[in-house]
Simulated scan of single mutants.
Amino acid sequence: MPRSQWAQHADEGRRFGHMTTNISECINAIMKGSRNLPITALIKSSYFRLGELFARKGSEALAQLQVSAEFSQTLMKAIESNSKHVNTMNVYQFDRSRSNFTVEELTAVSGSRQQNYQVLLDEGKCDCGYFQALHISCRHVLAACSHARLDWKRFVHPVYRMESIFNVYRSEFRPIGHEDD
């Protein structure tokens, strides 16, 4: 196992690919430049930075909603990347309900050690672990969906829908008035 994945290997608490260390790094990036400030200045700086972030991200999400985008651009890029390998796989279906599959990779994919993957669509599981960790369709799920003529979109967690993303940034920060007001 690559060294960069050691910490994630046994971390059952991760959600959507994030671990506590990743989240703290994101917060540190936002707080960069705010070190050694008095507490009031630190809070004010945090408030303004988050206000700007929410305004920018909210505008981006609204623009995506206005062009009827169903999912985020990041998700669509990941799906596009994962679907490049679908035609190089054999898919074997193991039930009438079209939810249990074995997917065999015919060509080596970089970073992959295995050749056969069990995909359980109803349980949201694939042996590669990507499907469970990120809650989006990995290449094996996309191959299974293609084989069974199922829509891969129903296996993507609702958090990736543009409505959900917009709802995160729906709240607006109010400007801080003068202390005398």
Results as ranks from 00 to 15, higher is better:
40 T>A: 13
173 F>L: 02
41 A>V: 04
130 Y>P: 00
30 I>T: 08
62 L>R: 00
168 V>A: 00
34 S>K: 14
12 E>A: 12
61 A>S: 06
118 Q>C: 12
66 Q>D: 13
99 S>F: 04
105 E>D: 10
96 R>T: 11
4 S>G: 06
137 S>G: 10
48 F>D: 14
179 E>Q: 11
37 L>C: 06
147 H>V: 06
96 R>L: 08
4 S>K: 14
65 L>D: 01
104 E>D: 14
56 R>K: 10
87 N>L: 11
38 P>A: 05
108 A>K: 13
14 R>I: 10
107 T>S: 13
139 R>E: 03
108 A>N: 06
11 D>C: 01
90 N>L: 14
162 M>L: 10
98 R>M: 05
110 S>W: 07
25 E>W: 10
25 E>Y: 13
39 I>Y: 00
66 Q>N: 15
168 V>G: 00
154 R>K: 15
10 A>D: 14
36 N>Y: 05
132 Q>D: 12
124 G>F: 11
6 W>K: 10
99 S>W: 08
105 E>N: 12
70 E>G: 05
39 I>S: 10
1 M>C: 11
56 R>N: 06
124 G>T: 06
96 R>N: 14
97 S>R: 07
76 M>Q: 13
57 K>N: 04
116 N>L: 12
39 I>E: 10
111 G>I: 02
1 M>N: 06
59 S>P: 03
162 M>I: 12
34 S>E: 12
48 F>E: 15
121 L>Y: 00
135 H>E: 15
20 T>L: 05
121 L>D: 04
37 L>T: 07
116 N>W: 08
152 W>D: 03
59 S>K: 15
34 S>A: 15
168 V>H: 03
10 A>H: 15
25 E>T: 13
45 S>G: 02
48 F>A: 11
109 V>D: 05
137 S>Q: 13
68 S>E: 11
101 F>P: 05
58 G>M: 01
120 L>G: 01
125 K>H: 14
92 Y>G: 03
